[in-house]
Amino acid sequence: MGKTSQNLYEIFGEVIAEHDFLKAFLITGGLAFLMYFSAPKIVSMLGREDLLNALRVTLSALGAFFGFIVSTAIIEPKRIVEEE
């Protein structure tokens, strides 16, 4: 516990691993942009082209949120909690 083969860095008092950050960024960024570019197809399927701009932003935020859930599940936090 407390060791990893990756390079560790301290940012704002948090320790992060470079590969894990890259993985999280690819997942969240990938899902956010995937949802963004899927929006035109989704609105045409719904027959509501007037909602395109609104849905683009909502779907991409939702994509980023899904990315956060997935990343949280697969990445180990780099903290050791000790209780007094």
Partner: peptide, 27 residues
């Protein structure tokens, strides 16, 4: 506090906000 420190990786949080910012900047 124990749950957040043990379960939520900083990488996921930073990546999420960065992704939201980039997609809104693109928009």
């Amino acid at each position: 506090t124990r749950f957040v420190f043990k379960k939520v990786p900083a990488e996921a949080l930073y990546a999420t906000f960065l992704a939201i910012v980039l997609v809104l900047a693109y928009n």
